[in-house]
Computed example of a mutant assay.
Amino acid sequence: MASIHKDISLEAPASAVWDAVADFGALHTRLVPGFVLDTKLDGEARIVSFANGTTVRELLVDCDETRRRLVYAVISERITQHSASVQVIADGEAKCRLVWTVDVLPHAIAPYIDGQMEQAALAMRKALAERAQPRTHAAPSVV
Rank of each mutant, 00 (worst) to 15 (best):
R46E: 06
R57M: 09
E118A: 12
G92A: 04
A139F: 08
W100P: 03
T66D: 14
D62W: 00
A121W: 12
K6D: 14
D103C: 03
R69S: 13
R69I: 09
S3W: 00
L37F: 10
V104Q: 00
L37D: 10
A20S: 10
I4M: 08
A138I: 08
L59I: 05
R57A: 09
A123M: 14
I113K: 11
D38E: 15
I8D: 03
M124G: 09
S76D: 08
D91F: 04
H28K: 06
G92C: 04
G43L: 05
A110S: 06
H137S: 09
E77V: 03
I8L: 07
D42N: 00
L128V: 02
C96I: 04
A73Y: 01
G53C: 00
L70F: 02
V86K: 00
S83A: 12
A73T: 10
V21R: 01
R57C: 06
Q87E: 12
K40N: 14
Y112I: 12
D38H: 12
S9M: 08
A129Q: 15
M117I: 15
Y112M: 07
P13H: 03
V71R: 13
A94Q: 13
S9V: 15
T66L: 11
A120G: 08
M117L: 09
A132S: 15
F35M: 02
P33W: 12
P13A: 13
A139V: 12
A26M: 05
R78P: 00
H107G: 01
I109P: 01
D114V: 02
A73G: 01
L41A: 11
H82L: 01
I75W: 13
V56A: 10
T29Q: 13
E44Q: 13
E118P: 11
R125F: 14
Q119E: 11
R57Q: 10
V61F: 04
V48I: 11
P134G: 08
S76K: 02
T101M: 05
I79C: 04
R135Q: 10
S49A: 14
K40G: 07
V142N: 01
E58K: 06
G115T: 11
V86T: 10
A16P: 02
E77R: 06
L70S: 03
D62E: 09
G53Q: 07
P13G: 07
L41N: 08
K126V: 11
D91Q: 14
R125L: 12
D103T: 07
I89G: 10
V88Y: 00
F24P: 06
R46D: 02
I8F: 06
G115P: 05
L105T: 11
R69Y: 10
A127V: 15
R97M: 09
R68I: 09
L98F: 03
I113P: 03
I79Q: 03
K6R: 15
P134R: 03
I4S: 01
A90D: 04
H137G: 11
T101A: 02
S85E: 00
G25R: 03
S3V: 06
K6F: 12
P134Q: 08
P106Y: 10
A12C: 14
E93I: 11
S3R: 13
T54P: 00
P134V: 05
A45S: 14
V143S: 15
T136K: 04
S141H: 10
L122V: 14
D103S: 04
L41H: 04
